[in-house]
Write a protein that binds this DNA or RNA. Structure first.
Lengths: 182, 182
DNA sequence: GTCTATACGAAGATAGAC
DNA sequence: GTCTATCTTCGTATAGAC
């Protein structure tokens, strides 16, 4: 059986932890591998030993949020349309608020998100969730769901001065106004 | 009197034209000065002769849209609250649709937009316009206006397959649902 | 005034010593 | 597993040809 190697895991975890902080504070593009290495107390080469490249570090940072999103999509896919919409709206707001730091990072890489195979599944789940959030397959309602998701993601950015509850309330009102229930 | 130098203007215009295309196709960050120079048929140093740096090229690309936005803000600022909101909503949709290529570019630089003094006035006008678009000074309505602008900007991205009219109609419905008229 | 040639520091990434 | 040294390309800067 595989013997666990604590040293490897400890360094890896520290890299992800520091990368998360740096990505949130300065953005993905503005953060260099050297910045991450210095913050984690190791060399640039060590970061690249644990991760295949900067996008792989990003994928590790996004992983907890990606897992939650995948779980939401899986659960909603089991339900009939109406309940799926309700569940998606309600839990996506919670998810975005809870992982708002990650959402902040996401905004930074939206333009190049298609060129990152490392986070392709996160993107796919995001699209599936958006489709579920619309009340029907009507193209207009589908587009309005995309509109809602874009607005919501934008609101989560640089929202340090807002409390979780305020953010939740705002998103709730916006989504209710925007999305017609099936 | 200043004698016009056609060669200078021609080169400069070609750089802006090619930069616009590259920024839209690949994004601002992913486009290098070398890419722009090659596309424009000149050297990297020539690009930097005409512009002080990459942000200055960006500012030139955004300039027509920035001018239209400034004009809109100036016009709306003259009106009473209610008419200002109507005008802003209606004309911002037109503006975003017309300059949708520029909007696409803007999304790419949102995270670092505060570090670019070259486009500070564009950013300031964007914030003023968002404030005008809300029906009142109520913080909730102000936040909903931000939500609306974020959603609208997101819809303009990668929307090559949508017609201008479809996009306009979508934005119109979304904004009407989202914003309470004063 | 317009441009080419060249150089600099920093980025992401790789090779190989220990 | 971690490091130093090195490579390429990036944005930027400058010297000087025409």
């Amino acid at each position: 059986m595989a013997v666990i190697t604590p040293a490897r895991e400890r360094t890896r975890r520290e890299i992800v932890r520091q990368a998360m902080d740096l990505f949130q504070a300065a953005g993905y593009n503005a953060t260099s591998l050297q910045d991450i290495a210095t913050a984690a107390g190791c060399s640039k080469a060590t970061v690249l030993y644990h991760f295949s490249g900067k996008p792989a570090v990003l994928a590790a940072v996004l992983e907890p949020a990606a897992a939650d999103l995948a779980q939401l999509v899986a659960a909603a896919s089991e339900l009939p349309r109406r309940e799926a919409q309700d569940l998606t709206i309600q839990r996506f707001i919670d998810l975005a608020v809870e992982h708002r730091g990650v959402v902040d990072v996401l905004q930074d890489i939206l333009p190049v998100i298609e060129d990152m195979p490392e986070i392709a599944s996160l993107v796919a789940d995001g699209l599936r969730m958006t489709a579920l959030m619309a009340g029907s397959d009507d193209p207009l309602e589908q587009d309005l769901a995309k509109f809602a998701v874009n607005g919501l993601l934008g609101e989560c950015r640089h929202s340090d001065e807002r409390t979780d509850d305020d953010l939740r309330r705002l998103c709730d009102i916006a989504l209710r106004r925007l999305l017609r229930r099936a």
